[in-house]
């Protein structure tokens, strides 16, 4: 146990010395890995942010039922009663035309509304269906459209569905990128270690003659690979963090403009830890593959 710890510490120190001994190479490798990893990491983060747009509407889609403008309070009340007894309707909320007008006036559109000859807004019901499967939604929509004095029925899940398809596409792209750049990272570390084994030939040969095991000889290289991956991961975190910090303000402006409750998520601690862990693990893997390949000659 003690010897084991001594070995780990010595190997880590050796790996650090090798990294520090070639600062340019170390930096260039970290930049390559960092930029490569920042793309899938940033993409993933963007997708998580976008997902919130679909949430709420895609989970429990709502149906808006607009009455005709000439429908009076009585007509709307009748429709409201029919909604109440319909088993396909989970809940129905009535938003009267006066309420809508008042809300918009408060929202700063008073002038526009006052300039209109009459209230242009219809009575509206917001219906939450009992069953939100696409077929049930469509059936309910058709049924509600036939009610008297109903002008229009809108299922607001259509765009959510489109968003979800787009998000799925995005996710596939992110996974592809992550896979490709992950392989790239492994290849980069593999080659770095190959070159190191060449320059450390004598040390490796002599160590073996003095009784070093393959594990002993490989260990500093494993640490080297893991550290190189880790450095790249750190840089990727920094790139994503900075980019999103810059973008956040712009996106906030945009969201404000469209009155959407949308906000760009920033990296969480768990994201950072996962990214660092993954990049270190890939670096270790690249080193292990390289060492296995190249220590055979000794």
């Amino acid at each position: 146990m003690n010897a084991w710890l001594t070995h780990q510490r010595a190997a880590l120190a050796q790996a650090l010395r090798r990294l520090a001994g070639t600062p340019t190479t170390t930096l260039l490798a970290a930049i390559s890995i960092g930029i490569a990893l920042s793309l899938p990491a940033g993409g993933h983060l963007l997708l998580t942010s976008l997902q919130q747009l679909g949430q709420g509407s895609s989970a429990n889609p709502q149906i808006s039922v607009f009455m005709t403008l000439d429908a009076d309070a009585k007509a709307s009340e009748k429709v409201g009663e029919q909604l109440k007894v319909n088993p396909a309707v989970g809940a129905a909320q009535f938003i009267g035309r006066e309420t809508t007008q008042k809300r918009l006036r408060e929202a700063g559109l008073a002038q526009v509304i006052d300039s209109l000859p009459r209230n242009p807004f219809p009575d509206t019901f917001v219906v939450t269906p009992a069953d939100s499967s696409p077929e049930a939604l469509e059936a309910l929509r058709a049924e509600l459209a036939k009610l008297p004095h109903v002008d229009q029925v809108q299922v607001d899940s259509a765009w959510a569905k489109r968003l979800s398809v787009l998000l799925n596409l995005g996710r596939t792209v992110v996974w592809l990128l992550a896979g490709l750049f992950g392989i790239g990272l492994i290849a980069l570390v593999f080659n770095t270690i190959r070159l190191q084994v060449l320059t450390k030939r004598e040390e490796i040969e002599v160590s073996r003659l003095l009784g070093a095991t393959d594990t002993y000889i490989g260990r500093p290289f494993y640490y080297f690979g893991a550290l190189q991956g880790l450095l790249g991961g750190l840089l990727a975190c920094a790139i994503v963090f900075a980019s999103f910090a810059i973008l956040q303000a712009r996106v906030a402006e945009l969201a404000e403009l469209y009155r959407m409750g949308f906000e760009l998520h920033q990296l969480k601690l768990t994201d950072i830890l996962a990214l660092l862990g993954l990049s270190a693990a890939l670096g270790w893997l690249g080193a292990a593959l390289s060492v296995r390949q190249h220590l055979r000659d000794f």
Binding site: W4, T6, E202, S207, L209, A212
Partner: peptide, 26 residues
């Protein structure tokens, strides 16, 4: 060894240390 097989990238001390490092000596 007849050709000694010393490591020229480190001090005399470090050369002699190597066998002990390999066995994980404190």
């Amino acid at each position: 060894f007849q050709d000694q097989k010393l490591l020229f990238d480190r001090s005399a001390f470090a050369n002699v240390m190597l066998p002990l490092q390999i066995i994980g000596f404190p």
